[in-house]
C-alpha cells in the first residue's frame, strides 16, 4: 500500500494512479471524523500557509478549501482577482513569482484558462492544487464525488455512472471520467449532441443522446449545470426545451434503479437541469457532496503539504 502522492501538485485526476485515488479517499475518511467534533481542529498543518488564488468566482470550492485548511490549523489567505494586482495588469507569471517570494506551503488556484495551474506549478516550489481550470479539470470535485459514491455504495468497481448535461464545457465531467475509468466504473455521458464533444468515446465513455436510457441503467446520476452564460451561442434552442428534454425530474426518475443516487456539483439551476423535488428528494446526495468536499480537501492538503 502506498502512503504518499507521487507528484508535488494536484493538477488533474488524469495524472493520479488508482492507488493514489484510494489513498486520498481513505485519508479523507479519517478527516471526516474531525468535522463532526465539537472542536473541529487538529494541529497537523500548524505554521503552514495556504494561498487560495481565485481568478473565477466560487463560493463552494473556495470556502471548502478555506475550511479544510483551517481545520488542519493552516493559515489560509484568500486572494480574489477583483481585489488583486491582476486588475492592474500583472501577469500570472509575475503573480506566481511574487507569491513564491512569500514562501507559501501550498497554492490553490482556480482560473478560467485551461493549463494555468500547470503553468504556475512549474514556477512555484510549493504544491499547487487545481481548483478548476477552464474546461480542463476540477480534480477535487471528482475526488469528492468518488468519496460520496463510495460512502453510499461501498464499492466503486463496476458501478454504472451517467453524467448528464453540458459535457463539452465541463471540467467536472472530464475529471470524473478520468478518475472513474481508473476505478473500474462504467461511464455514460448524455445531453444534447451540441454539448457532447466529438471524439469523447476516446476518453473511454459511452454516449447516449437518449436521456431516458442513460437514467434507466445508472447506479449513479451526475447532473451538470447548464451554463446559462453560453446560451447565446445557440447550442440549444431554449432553456425550457432543454429542461423538458434533458432535465431530471420525478417523471424521468420513474424508470431509474431503486437505489440510484443523484449528484450535482453545484451551483444548481433549479427547474432547469434538475427539478426542485429531485434536488431535495430521497435519492439526492448533493449536500453530502458539500460536506465530503471539506474532508477530501483536508486529505489532499495534508498529503501534499504535511511532510514538506
Amino acid at each position: 500500500m502506498i502512503n504518499k502522492l507521487k507528484s508535488k501538485d494536484l493538477i488533474g485526476t488524469k495524472d493520479l494512479s488508482p492507488e493514489e485515488i484510494l489513498l486520498i479517499l481513505d485519508t479523507a475518511e479519517s478527516m471526516k471524523e474531525i468535522s463532526s467534533r465539537d472542536i473541529k481542529k487538529v494541529p497537523a498543518l500548524r505554521g503552514k500557509t495556504i494561498i487560495n488564488l481565485f481568478y473565477e468566482s466560487s463560493t463552494r470550492t473556495r470556502t471548502s478549501f478555506e475550511i479544510a485548511g483551517k481545520r488542519l490549523s493552516a493559515d489560509v489567505v484568500n486572494i480574489s482577482v477583483s481585489t488583486s494586482s491582476v486588475v492592474k495588469g500583472e501577469t500570472l507569471k509575475d503573480t506566481a513569482k511574487n507569491l513564491e517570494a512569500m514562501n507559501p506551503d501550498a497554492v490553490v488556484i482556480r482560473h478560467s484558462s485551461s493549463g494555468a495551474p500547470d503553468f504556475i506549478s512549474k514556477i512555484l516550489k510549493c504544491p499547487v492544487i487545481n481548483a478548476g481550470d477552464g474546461a480542463h479539470e476540477h480534480p477535487t470535485q471528482a475526488l469528492l464525488d468518488l468519496f460520496t459514491i463510495r460512502e453510499k455504495k461501498k464499492e466503486l468497481k463496476g458501478l454504472k455512472v451517467s453524467i448528464i448535461g453540458d459535457i463539452a464545457h465541463s471540467r467536472v465531467a472530464r475529471s470524473n471520467i478520468y478518475a472513474m475509468n481508473k476505478m473500474g466504473m462504467d461511464v455514460t455521458v448524455s445531453g444534447p449532441s451540441t454539448l457532447i464533444p466529438v471524439d469523447i468515446e476516446k476518453m473511454g465513455v459511452k454516449i447516449s443522446t437518449d436521456v431516458k436510457k442513460a437514467i434507466e441503467g445508472a447506479d449513479v446520476i451526475i447532473m451538470l449545470r447548464i451554463q446559462l452564460e453560453r446560451q447565446e451561442k445557440g447550442l440549444f434552442p431554449s432553456i425550457r426545451e432543454y429542461s423538458r428534454l434533458f432535465g431530471l425530474n420525478t417523471e424521468k426518475l420513474k424508470n431509474a434503479k431503486e437505489d440510484v443516487i443523484i449528484m450535482h456539483p453545484g451551483p444548481m439551476n433549479r427547474g432547469v437541469e434538475i427539478s426542485a423535488d429531485v434536488a431535495d428528494g430521497q435519492y439526492s446526495l448533493i449536500l453530502d457532496q458539500v460536506t465530503n468536499g471539506v474532508a477530501v480537501r483536508m486529505a489532499i492538503l495534508h498529503l501534499l503539504t504535511g511532510g514538506a
Binding site: K4, E33, V42, A44
Partner: peptide, 23 residues
C-alpha cells in the same frame, strides 16, 4: 485514537504514517 495529525515528528515520519480514524 490516531495521533498522526498531532505528531511533532511528522516531518521524518510522514512517509510511514497514513492518517487513520479516531473512533
Amino acid at each position: 485514537i490516531d495521533i498522526t495529525l498531532y505528531r511533532d515528528d511528522i516531518k521524518s515520519d510522514i512517509s510511514k504514517h497514513i492518517v487513520k480514524k479516531t473512533e
